[in-house]
Every structure is written in structure tokens, then in C-alpha cells.
Nucleic acid binder design. Structure first.
Length: 419
RNA sequence: GUGAGCGUAGCCCAGCGGUUAAGGCGCCAGGUUGUGGCCCUGGAGAUCGUGGGUUCAAAUCCCACCGUUCACCCCA
């Protein structure tokens, strides 16, 4: 038997209310803040990711789905959302629009990882990006928007962590300092951290091993080594967040996984954690567009995973609105009634009334059971008696009351607003 | 990629060496002649994840693989 590939899953009808709920909240949030939808292809020139997300990260080193098409071109399934948005920004000359350009996307992303709950090989991201503006007010807006999003979903138990990781000018010096600091006791680092020390020293800071954390406690904090510009920027972000009454925690050890971040980085995680914690994360990436061949362009954004949101919605047992279905079920008895029923179904649908028509010549009892399990509002029953007099039997499934209504009036009756 | 737990009908699960693998939900049919929800009766549905091994005998023990879950890692 065939199965959905490892780390992927089907979204069955019963799950879709969650997805629709989250997607609609996302779209209305973006409307509220003036972010417009952008859809990019599911695969890109592999370099869109390899050049930007950068080496030293697992995403590029071992998690990307890279393949050659028949012409030999190297393509990659979308590994994350931000780089494609930037590619589109450059390709379509969106820098000619009034800046900043505010965009959002919802779509799948692919990483070859070992699956567990909240972590898949195909997952879905919602992200928003503001391109072409360096103002720290925009960093604050993006953080506020993230918070606004989660609370609009009804997820209240989360924490926003904030940090600044500097820029091209101040970060290299800090990294040197960090390396020096750690290299003294390199032999005491965990195996992962020994690699980090060489390939990606910033990541030393968020190792969870207790033995390594002792050393990070003593390590220099990047926020103490920011250049003047970065310092001012970070202070402004915090000031604006304070003005908007956005609660956040400063976490000098917060480092994002993707290499393109500069200055502001932030992460949202549930208060009660365990397993795959991060609900979403984001930050500023002032060099990314340039790396994709555009002019130097500052930008800031945020992305979140729909699977993890839905996981948390379920954990909190929030009530999610059901998907609306038809209000009317048509049942019929033997003989001509079936053809009459089909005509009636067709007419009602033309009038904009949703109908599920019985099929398969089941007993009336079986048809009524079906109507019941569909949780439908009204059943229409057609038998010889009704057809002879051009009537239908209308049964209110909730109250159990029923009455005979002339065929000609039934559409009008059903269109009346429900009490 | 590393370590650990789990894998019995569509779903939840009992059985943990010995005759036809139990139950619940769901599904189908019937319980008066044209009517649902409760209840009752009957029915369909399981190569006990896959392959190999141990044994007179394996869903039950062992090994491998696959899947899944958890932790690490990584990140959404």
C-alpha cells in the first residue's frame, strides 16, 4: 500500500477547519497592516537558498531537496520563505515602488529532516516581510504583528524573545572575541560545539548542554559589542515595543538559525514547551537582497509554521469554527420520485441553496440517518403523494417538525433568514 | 545524523508462547406499510507494520528493515 512520503501528511477534511481558521486570520492580519500577498514557485534556482541561507547551517548543508531538471539546472524545493520573496523583489523591480514594500506568503517549505511532532519534511509557513526600509519602527511593527497574530488566534501563552546580533561592521570583531573566549577550553566543549567553534561560532551561544552553558554564561554578550549604529537601532526597537506595550524578554543568547540575519532577531515560543518549541521567528536581514544581486536594501520579516500553530490550538482546546456545508438534504422514495428529486436539487442549487442529494436507492430510513449524520438543517422528502400534488415534505431536522410545501415555494422558503 | 519507546480492522484498544484474535467508536442492513437522533438485533471489515529466525507451536520471544513518537540535533 502506498503511503504519503515520510515526514509529509494528508490534511483530511476534519483537519481543514484548523487550516482555514489560521489562513483567514493570517490574511486579515496582513490586510490590517497593509501587507500584500505574494506567491512564489515551490522550487527555485538552488542558489537562491545556498547563497543566502549560507553554509554552516544544517538547512543548506544537509536538509535541502536539491535536484537537477532535465536541462541539468540545479533546482531546490523551497527551503524557507524569505529568500524567494527577496528574489521576486529584485526580479520584478519592486524597489521602484514606494518603500517599504510589504508582502506576505503562505505556502509549503521542504527540509529533509527526521520527522517528529511539529517537525516535518513538508511544512507550511506563513511569513511577512517589509522590504526597503531600515527604520527600527518597522522592526517593532513586525514584532507587534507577530504578537497580534498569535493573540488573534487565541494563543495567549507565548513569550517573545529579542536580541540584536549586530551587522557586518561589528559582528566579525565580536565573533573573534567569542572564538578566543572559547578556544581556551575547546576540549571541554561538546562535540557539536567543537564544530560550531570553527563553522558558526554564534551558535555556541544557544547550545543546550549544561556543560556548554556554563561557558556561555561567562562568554561576552554580543549586545555589549554592538557598533554605535546597531546599539541605537536596538534601543529604538525596544523603546517602540515598550510604547506599544509589547512584552518581550531580552535574550543575549538568542541566535537565529539562518545566517542572513542582522541586528534585530526575535523568536516566539509557547510558555509551556517540550518538543519543537519555536512557534515562529524573524528579524532583520539588511544584506540578503544585495546577496541576491539587488542593490543594498534593508528589510525585516517574520515567519511561523502552521503545523505548530495548529498543534498549539489543539493543546489549548480552542473552539474552531466548522466549515459551512449545505443546509438541505433531499430524500426520495421509489418510482419517479428520484428524477423529481434531481430536478429539485438542481433548481435549488441554481437558486443558491446548498443541497446534498441522496443517492443509491436506500430506504427512506437510511436516507434520514444519512441526513442526521450530516448535521443538516432541513430534509426534503419526495414521494408519490408529494409529486402528485406538486409538493415537497419539508422536515426541520433540529425540531423534528415537518410540513408540506408547494414545490414552487420551497426555494423562497429556504432562502428566508434562519431564526 | 545519534539515542530510546511504540506498531493488533477506518479510529481507540484487549490479548503478551498453545485451539475460530476480544471489545468500543464508526460503517452497512433490519427492528411494521414513507422518516433521523436513543435503544435493540444482525453483518462486513485484521496477510496481528514487513521480512527473516527460535520453537512441536508465535500477535506474543529474537534480529533486520520500514513507519511512528520522544529526546538530541536543527528549526517553523
Amino acid at each position: 500500500m502506498y503511503k504519503a512520503p515520510r515526514g509529509t501528511f494528508d490534511i483530511l477534511p476534519q483537519e481543514h477547519p484548523y487550516w482555514k481558521y489560521v489562513e483567514e486570520k493570517a490574511a486579515s492580519l496582513c490586510q490590517l497592516y497593509g501587507y500584500q500577498p505574494l506567491s512564489t514557485p515551490i522550487f527555485e534556482d538552488a542558489q537562491v537558498f545556498t547563497k543566502t541561507v549560507a553554509g554552516g547551517t544544517d538547512i543548506v548543508d544537509k536538509e535541502m531537496y536539491i535536484f537537477q531538471d532535465k536541462s541539468g539546472q540545479e533546482l531546490a524545493l523551497r527551503a524557507e520563505g524569505t529568500a524567494p520573496v527577496c528574489r521576486a523583489y529584485v526580479e520584478h523591480g519592486l524597489f521602484n515602488l514606494p518603500q517599504p514594500v510589504k508582502l506576505y506568503y503562505i505556502g509549503p517549505a521542504f527540509r529533509y529532516e527526521r520527522p517528529q511532532s511539529g517537525r516535518y519534511r513538508q511544512h507550511h509557513q506563513f511569513g511577512f516581510e517589509a522590504l526597503g526600509e531600515a527604520d527600527p519602527a518597522l522592526d517593532a511593527e513586525v514584532v507587534e504583528m507577530a504578537r497580534h497574530f498569535f493573540s488573534s488566534l487565541g494563543l495567549s501563552q507565548f513569550i517573545i524573545q529579542l536580541n540584536s546580533i549586530g551587522c557586518r561592521l561589528c559582528r566579525p570583531g565580536y565573533l573573534e572575541l567569542l572564538k578566543q573566549n572559547y578556544s581556551g577550553y575547546a576540549d571541554r566543549l561538546c562535540p557539536d560545539c567543537k564544530v560550531r567553534l570553527v563553522k558558526n561560532p554564534l551558535r555556541l551561544l544557544d547550545c543546550k548542554k549544561a556543560s556548554c552553558q556554563e561557558m556561555t554564561g561567562a562568554a561576552p554578550k554580543i549586545t555589549d559589542y554592538l557598533c554605535h549604529e546597531c546599539q541605537l537601532h536596538f534601543q529604538s526597537v525596544q523603546k517602540y515595543l515598550g510604547l506599544m506595550r509589547i512584552l518581550f524578554e531580552l535574550n543575549p543568547r538568542l541566535v537565529r538559525g539562518l545566517d542572513y540575519y542582522t541586528r534585530t532577531v526575535f523568536e516566539v515560543e509557547p510558555r509551556e514547551n517540550g518538543g519543537q518549541t519555536a512557534l515562529g521567528g524573524g528579524g532583520r536581514y539588511d544584506n540578503l537582497i544585495e546577496e541576491l544581486g539587488g542593490k543594498p536594501t534593508p528589510a525585516v520579516g517574520f515567519a511561523t509554521g502552521l503545523e505548530r500553530i495548529i498543534l498549539n490550538l489543539k493543546k489549548q482546546r480552542l473552539d474552531i469554527p466548522a466549515l459551512p456545508g449545505p443546509d438541505v438534504f433531499i430524500a426520495y422514495l421509489e418510482g419517479e420520485a428520484k428524477t423529481e428529486a434531481m430536478k429539485l436539487a438542481s433548481d435549488l442549487r441554481k437558486a443558491g441553496i446548498g443541497v446534498i442529494m441522496a443517492t443509491g436507492d436506500k430506504s427512506l430510513r437510511a436516507q434520514m440517518r444519512q441526513a442526521d449524520s450530516l448535521e443538516i438543517a432541513y430534509a426534503l422528502i419526495l414521494g408519490e403523494q408529494e409529486i402528485r400534488k406538486r409538493n415537497v415534505m419539508l422536515r426541520d431536522m433540529r425540531s423534528g417538525e415537518q410540513k408540506t410545501v408547494p414545490c414552487a415555494e420551497i426555494a423562497g422558503f429556504l432562502k428566508q433568514p434562519k431564526v
